[in-house]
Each structure stands twice: as structure tokens, then as C-alpha cells.
Nucleic acid binder design. Sequence first.
DNA 1: TTAGGGTTAG
Length: 508
Amino acid sequence: MKTKSPTFSVTTASQLHDAIDRLLPLLRADAYHVPAARALAAAAASLPSSNLLLSNRLLHLLSSQSASLPDALSLLSSIPNPDRCSYNTLIAALSRSQRHLPSARALFDRMPQRDHFSWSTIVSAYSRHGQPLDALALYRRMHEDPENAGADNEFTASSALASATAARCARAGRELHCHVARKGIGADDAVMWSALADMYAKCGRVDDARKVFDGMPVRDVVSWTAMVERYFDAGRVEEGFMLFLHMLGPAGVRPNEFTYAGVLRACAELAVESLGRQVHGRMLKSSIGDSCFAESALLHMYSKCGDMGSVECVFEQMTKPDLVSWTAMICGYAQNGQPEEALHYFDMFLRSGIRPDHVTFVGVLSACAHAGLVEKGLEVFHLIKDEYGIQHTADHYACVIDLLSRSGQFERAEEMINKMPVKPNKFLWASLLGGCRIHKNVCLARRAAEALFEIEPENPATYVTLANIYTSVGLFDEVEGVRGIMESKGIRKVPASSWEKSACVSGC
DNA sequence: TTAGGGTTAG
């Protein structure tokens, strides 16, 4: 049930301000209110007197939804003397989507003068849309331009730090650290410090990140969550959990849905259900219990632990499962050897009206492969592009190769590999190897093994997998060759990587 | 009146 758009009687500037205040949160939440925003803009145009502040507020309103973005651009071109705020508002709105980034940049280049809002917006836009080196170049350009010498502040600097992080460039990050310390930028700003610690951690320097974290004059829940997460990412699980406990106890910081989701992800990776269950209990006692975001992490944790009963319980209590929740259900059942349940959830999901994405289809195709539903899987594979307009990913191809090779249809599998427009990934070759093991296809096993070796020549798991595969298809000379390399490299026993498990699931 | 850090599912 939609909230009806309010109607406004606007004859004065004051009434227009009030109307914008009321409509802005509604429009941000739902594009349904776009016609009301357009009506308000039309009413504003007929007011006898207006000012730039009002025009800028209207620009902000119209640019809060992509559907009314053209109206905002049209309004900008009708303002006689737009100021920096007018341009900044539109640059921020355009740069929300990658598709409009060139337009945002064109407006940025075209505006007569830029300020710290303009620079932080454009730097973070390039960083977010996968061009962090361009973002850093822009930040440097800001410093080189005497006109913008005073524009640097905690917003521009933290955007630049996030760019160094995205580029995994510790050198640029370290330079930025020196720069902000020397200039005293953001000394009391939690965002600035958090960005700095995260830069070190994501550049592989977790201990440096911890030093920054320990020395922070101000910390908030994001700083804590990020530091805990970085320990998990680095495989330093115990330190991650210790810091999480410190956060709950002595520090007295209240975790939010991101904190819980991160800790649950670590529990899922380690498959420690007892710990995950405790975290779940804590969530229920807090107000986070009904966060869809954190609940999806719960679904994932329980399904990684193989506890589909608890998965069902959590899912049934969710008030409004979203795309990620449904996908977690489909993938969870597919991975736990219950493909029929996975496909049942996919049917229910389609009836919910939410559009599936590329990850959903990985779960569906995986379920078809596990259930041996070759034709159904191929039908779904074609639907992905033809019905939903989603480009096939290497993972979709890997699932279909899994499907075909398990059923011994190697000619079709090879034909698909030779024609696929994306580069085959290690999961594809591992899936093919699994099928080769079942059907003793020595020739294709050799091709798949060599391709796998090319992708990950330095991964010890590659050698272990290759030795196993060669053994199972009877290529004993190759087994000896691989074992020789393993001995020379000192490789004995390594934990199975995800793709190695995938090959084993397919083949054993 | 406009900007920044952590972000669940394969």
C-alpha cells in the first residue's frame, strides 16, 4: 500500500520550503512521489518571486530520484545565475550511477568555480565507480590548482583515502596520511580516522591499521566494525572476535546491522554454529533483530553450518525478505544437497515480484546441476539473458559446464566453452574436472587441469587438486610430475580451497 | 541548500 502523495497549496516562499521538507523524505523512499515533486516545481515556477536558495532546494528534491533527474537538469538550465551549490547538487545526483558519471564530470568541468563540495563529490564518485586512480589524480589536480588551494578538508581527504584504499595503493595512502597529519585535517573527525585505518588494513597492513585505530581520538561504530572486519579478512579470526567482544564490553559501543553481518560472515566461513547462535541471541535482544540486512547474514551463517531448520525459522520470521534473503535461501538449499527445495524457493521468489539478479541464477543453476536437471538448467541459462536481460557471467557458464559434464555431455560442454564470450574461470575448469573424474574423460581432464594450473600456478591447492585428478583418471606419469613439483616446493597438505571442494563435490 | 569512512547472498 503506497503512502498517498500530499497535496500542497503553495503561494508563498515559506509554504514552498515547508512543502519541500515534507516531500523530500517521501520521494527519497519511493519514486511514486515524482509527479508530486514535478507539480511542486511547476507551482514554484509560477510564484511571483523566487530566490536561488529555493531553486537549489527544488534541485535537491528533483534530483533525489533518478526518474526526476531530467527535471532537475532542466531546472538547472533555467536558473539565470546558478551557484556552486546548484552545480554540486546535480553532480552528486548524476554521479550516483556509473552510467551518468561522464555527465557528472562534464558538469564538474563546466562549472565556473568549484569548492570542497564539488571536489569531494567527484573524487568519491570516481572511487566508487571503479576508477580510484582517476579519483586520486583529480585530488592531486585540486592541490595543483591555486584557485582550489583552500578546498581541501576532511571530506575531500577522506574521499582521497578511500580512493587509495580502492586502488590498494599503500604508497598513496601513506602520503595522504602524512599530508593530513601535517595539515591537521580531520584531527577530530571519526570518518577521517576510520578511512585512514581502513586504508592500511586493506593494503595488507593490519597492524598499522590497528595502531591508527588505537590512537584515534574519536571512534564510532563504523570504526569498530571496520577494524573487526579487517581482522577477519586477514584470517586473524581470534583477534577479530576479541575486538568484537571488547566493543560489546569495555568499550560499550552498540553494534549495528553491519557489525552483526560481518561477525556472522566470519562464523559462516568457519562454520562455527555455536558462536553464530550466540550472536543471533544477542541480535534478538537488541533492536537489530528485524533488520533484513542482518537476517540475511543469519540465513547464510546457518546454511553454511548445514542447519537448514534454523534457516527456515529465521526466514519464516522475516517480515519482508529482499533479493539477498531469497538468494541466500536458494543458494543455501542448493549447496546443502536439497536442489528441489532450492527450486521451490525460486518459484516462490518469482511470485514475490522481486527481480532476480546474477547471483540468484548461480543458485538456481547450481540446484539444477545437483538435481541432474540438464534441460531445465539450460532453459534457465537462456532465460537469464532473454527474459531478464542479465549478461551471463563466468559463474553462470561454470554452472552449466558442471551440469553438462556431470551428465557426460562433454561435446556440448566443449562447444559452450569454445563459444563463451567471457573468460572461463577456475570454477568452470574445476567443474569440468569433476565431470571428467566421473566419466573418466582423460583427454578433457588434461585440458581442464592445464587451464586450471595456468590460472593459479602459485596456489598449493592447485597441485593437490591436480595430483588427485590425474590419479582418478589414470594419468600416473602426470601424477609423478606434479608430486615432484610439490616436493620441490615443500607442499604437503593444504586446506581445500572453495574450487577444490567444488571439484570434489562434482567428482566424488 | 550540496559532499566523505564500514556494507548481507554465488
